[in-house]
Structure formats: structure tokens, C-alpha cells
């Protein structure tokens, strides 16, 4: 098994992959009689893009929810940065530097794009109630710093033109992008993306793929993503976990996964979007 201290390696395209950042050990998650995750182990290395794939209902979102603290597995251990993580609430996970997006998009519909993205900075805001009320200097400087970060992300994701637009008015593809922006605003160490390209047209998918690669490349952010589009998965990811009916049926680099017989069987005759 790999450990924290193990030397990383450099990918063909020159990106640095480090030691293990997060490790799931023998995770089992049940909902009443339904076993959503059955004794699954895998790890995520620093700097890599890790894909989780599998047919509908395989348990992919459940796995992401376990990592982000929304679900609590009945069995298994979660290790983050070389330490075992105690059961945590989602907000505690977020404060550890793990940001996420949702399969069904969870934005603050009543707020503008920029306000939505600003909420991503909450984990970085230190000023308490009283310093904000009585001692405007530092609180104000902090606000300006946070705005700067947010503006950089807005430029990066090319959404300047909708900065002030209420999110409720945006088309689906742009909502997905704003949700990514909010997650990025947290400057996370680990970014979890649940089907970031679902429901997008080809052009939007290409944009999103480019953003994901750029985030990983420029900020060195570790990314775990769920995606149904095999082409996208093969292009983006360094390593792939394949799930089916809650079990892990494959784990390895894309080219290996493509030729894995279990994986091919799991996907045969299964319709995907």
C-alpha cells in the first residue's frame, strides 16, 4: 500500500503527482437494506485527477458524499493527509480544504453569481462578529483580499459577463460553471466534482474539460470527479475507479480500464447519458 511519504512521479505531460492525499479503507455504506457501497478501498494522490465511473446507481455519488461528510459509512476508515479522520460534518470537511459540486447543482438561487462565489470564501474569513462591527480595518482588508481571489476565479472561468446576474436566471451549463467557481473560491486542496459535464452540449463539455485540466495544472489542485462520458474520462484522468452495484470492479490508469473485461461487461447493454 502506498503511504504519505512515498515519492511521487511526474506524468507524461509534466505534472507532479505526489504521495497519498486521501485514502478510503474498506468503506461500506448501507441505506436500510440497500448497500450503496460494499467494502471499497482506494486512494487519491496529491495532484492527480482521479475519476470514479460506473453505471447508474453504482454508488459513485454516495462515495463522494462519504468523502465530503454528507454520508457516514457504517464500516471502514477514511484517511486524510496521513491521519485517520473521525466522523465529520460536511462543514468540518469543507474547513479541512475539501470543496465539492453536486450532481443536481446546489447553488444559492436567490443570490447573484458573485455573491455565490463569495460564499466559497467563507472558510477563509477570519474576522469575527466583533472585529467586523468595531474594528473595520482588518475586516475590510480581508473583504478586499477575498474579492480579489473571487475576481481571479471569475476571469479564469470566463464568466465576467454574468458576474451580477441572479443565478436563478442562468442556463444549466453556466450554473455548473458557477458552482465550480464557488468550489474553487475555497482554494481547496481536494476538489470533488459530481458529473460536472452532465447535460452539457459538446462545446460546453470541451470548455469544462479545459477548465478542469487548467485548475489541476495551474493550481496543483487534486481532483476527484464522477463522469459518464468515457471519452472525457479517458482524456482527463490519471487513474480511474470503476464501481458497479456498490462494488469496486476496476482501478487503474485509463488505458488499463478500457481493456478490463469486468468493466466492459458492466457497461454492456447499459444505456448512458
Amino acid at each position: 500500500m502506498l503511504d504519505e511519504t512515498e515519492e511521487g512521479h511526474v506524468t507524461e505531460d509534466g505534472r507532479q503527482i505526489g504521495g497519498v492525499l486521501m485514502e478510503m479503507r474498506n468503506i461500506t455504506l448501507r441505506f436500510g437494506g440497500v448497500v450503496a457501497i460494499k467494502d471499497i478501498s482506494f486512494d487519491i494522490r496529491k495532484g492527480e485527477i482521479r475519476a470514479i465511473i460506473g453505471p447508474n446507481g453504482a454508488g459513485k455519488s454516495s462515495m463522494l458524499n462519504v468523502i465530503s461528510g454528507f454520508y457516514h459509512p457504517q464500516e471502514g476508515e477514511i484517511w486524510f493527509k496521513g491521519a485517520r479522520r473521525k466522523p465529520m460534518k460536511p462543514y468540518q470537511v469543507a474547513r479541512q480544504g475539501i470543496a465539492r459540486t453536486f450532481q443536481n447543482i446546489a447553488l444559492f438561487e436567490g443570490m447573484s453569481v458573485i455573491d455565490n462565489i463569495m460564499t466559497g470564501r467563507l472558510t477563509h474569513m477570519r474576522s469575527g462578529l466583533f472585529s467586523q462591527a468595531l474594528w473595520w480595518g482588518p475586516a475590510e482588508r480581508e473583504e478586499l483580499e477575498n474579492r480579489e481571489v473571487v475576481e481571479r476565479i471569475i476571469d479564469f472561468l470566463e464568466i465576467q459577463h454574468i458576474r451580477k446576474t441572479p443565478v436563478a436566471r442562468l442556463p444549466y451549463g453556466l450554473k455548473k460553471r458557477v458552482e465550480l467557481a464557488r468550489a474553487l473560491a475555497a482554494e481547496p486542496e481536494l476538489l470533488l466534482l459530481d458529473e460536472p459535464m452532465a447535460g452539457m452540449n459538446v462545446e460546453e463539455k470541451e470548455d469544462m474539460s479545459r477548465f478542469i485540466l487548467d485548475v489541476n495544472d495551474e493550481f496543483g489542485t487534486t481532483i476527484a470527479l464522477i463522469e459518464h462520458d468515457m471519452g472525457v474520462v479517458m482524456d482527463l484522468s490519471d487513474r480511474v475507479v470503476v464501481m458497479d452495484y456498490g462494488r469496486k470492479i476496476g482501478d487503474g490508469p485509463p488505458e488499463e480500464i478500457r481493456n478490463n473485461q469486468d468493466v466492459i461487461d458492466a457497461y454492456l447493454g447499459v444505456a448512458h447519458d
Binding site: K89, Y91, M111, T119, M125, E143
Partner: peptide, 26 residues
């Protein structure tokens, strides 16, 4: 409108799940 807690408050009022994901304690 302008304080950290106020922003968190508006976020929770808008969407619990999203609020949790940005590190807000309900």
C-alpha cells in the same frame, strides 16, 4: 449584507445543502 455571518445566514436561508458544502455550520 456585509458580515461573514450575515452572508452565511443568507446562504443557509437559500439552500441548506449548498451552505453545508461551503463550510457553514447549520
Amino acid at each position: 449584507q456585509y458580515s461573514k455571518q450575515g452572508r452565511a445566514l443568507r446562504a443557509v436561508a437559500d439552500d441548506h445543502q449548498a451552505a453545508l458544502s461551503v463550510g457553514i455550520s447549520l
